[in-house]
């Protein structure tokens, strides 16, 4: 059997909220070491990669590997039943046809249970090659979310330039062009060598969808390398990571 309990059920609710506009039907892989999910959006331009380690759960048991095909759209509807401060338990049998979700409030006087029907999906698993990222930067997730929203009003596309010490977001649209440069480190030792920077352009529409995850973490990590998808990574405290990959725009 499989059973996983999170004391703070709203974390799981936020994760589902943060991916529901990108992916619809997904396979959640439950293994003895944790839960993971990898799915692409319908246009194959963005990929969601979630890993939650067993040690972050209050209780975790998974006797054998299970693939749980689930509609994220429907799961998001069920998540509306999760209230602030509720715990959440996910459980199923070994050959499951449904996933049971149990939410309980802190006083233990209110319990909600729902069985979500499982679906069979072709798994289209993509192997993400080991990548040496040229540029990595961690910044405030709220700030990143806000600036992506504002830049989207000015342009559909943003050009990223990131290094070890700064990140620059440049846009060019019908009304003009501009950029936001954020200095993130004043470490002299770091700047003594020439900085490697990479410039890549991305669709702001997708970045805004990724930013629905900003409430999961105060920080967001951006990783870039030439001709490689951007990685936007949110650490889910003590539980795991939620990563989004986005294909760069290219001049045809």
């Amino acid at each position: 059997m499989f059973e996983a309990k999170l004391t703070d059920g709203t974390i799981f609710k936020k994760i589902i909220e943060a991916i529901k506009d990108l992916v619809t039907d997904v396979n959640i892989d439950a293994t003895p070491t944790g839960l993971s999910l990898q799915a692409m959006d319908s246009s194959h331009v963005a990929l969601v990669n979630l890993h939650l380690g067993m040690e972050g759960f209050e209780r975790y048991r998974c006797d054998r590997n299970l693939t749980l095909g689930i509609s994220i759209t429907n799961l998001a509807k069920v998540m509306k039943l999760v209230n602030q401060n509720d715990s959440i338990t996910l459980k199923c049998e070994d050959e499951p046809t449904y996933l049971t979700i149990v939410c309980q409030n802190q006083k233990h006087d209110r319990t909600t249970q729902f069985n979500v029907n499982l679906i069979t999906l072709d798994s289209e698993h993509l192997g993400i090659p080991e990548t040496e990222y040229t540029s990595e930067i961690t910044m405030n997730s709220g700030e990143f979310s806000k600036l992506c929203k504002e830049l989207y009003a000015l342009s559909e596309t943003v050009e990223f330039e990131i290094s070890t010490t700064f990140v620059k977001f440049a846009v060019e649209g019908e009304i003009g062009s501009g950029s936001i440069k954020i200095q993130t480190s004043a470490d002299e030792a770091e700047t003594s060598r020439p900085e490697d920077t990479v410039k890549l352009s991305f669709a702001l529409r997708y970045l805004n969808l990724f930013n629905k995850a900003y409430s999961l973490s105060n920080q967001v990590k951006l990783s870039m390398a030439a001709e490689t998808p951007l990685v936007v990574e949110y650490e889910v405290e003590s539980l795991g990571t939620l990563k989004y990959y986005l294909a760069p725009k290219i001049t045809d």
């Binding site: 194959h44 993509l126 192997g127 993400i128 990959y245 760069p248 725009k249 290219i250």
Partner: peptide, 14 residues
């Protein structure tokens, strides 16, 4: 003209 290559071309089908 901007286009986006599918992720399938960067990642490996397994």
């Amino acid at each position: 003209n901007w286009t986006q290559r599918d992720l399938d071309q960067y990642f490996i089908q397994v």
